[in-house]
Amino acid sequence: MSLKAFHVFFLAVSLLMTLGFGVWAIRDYLDAGKQSSLYLGTGSFVVAALLAVYGVWFLKKLRNVSYV
């Protein structure tokens, strides 16, 4: 597996983690009313969106590089 393939895998895991953390933080805000959790949750969803955009850009940029 090349660095390209591992990076794509890493991005997928990171994307899932940021989405999961976003849900956790928003639930924490709704349950405990912590303002900081609202900011963290919103920030996490923004990061997830950025990772998705970057992932697409990365795949296009390195389309000629092997996955092996």
Binding site: F10, S14, M17, G20
Partner: peptide
């Protein structure tokens, strides 16, 4: 080096939650 670095970062992605 990048493969090692990605592994180290991946460990943190699991450690954090």
């Amino acid at each position: 080096t990048g493969l090692y670095w990605h592994f180290v970062d991946l460990v943190w992605i699991f450690l954090f939650p």
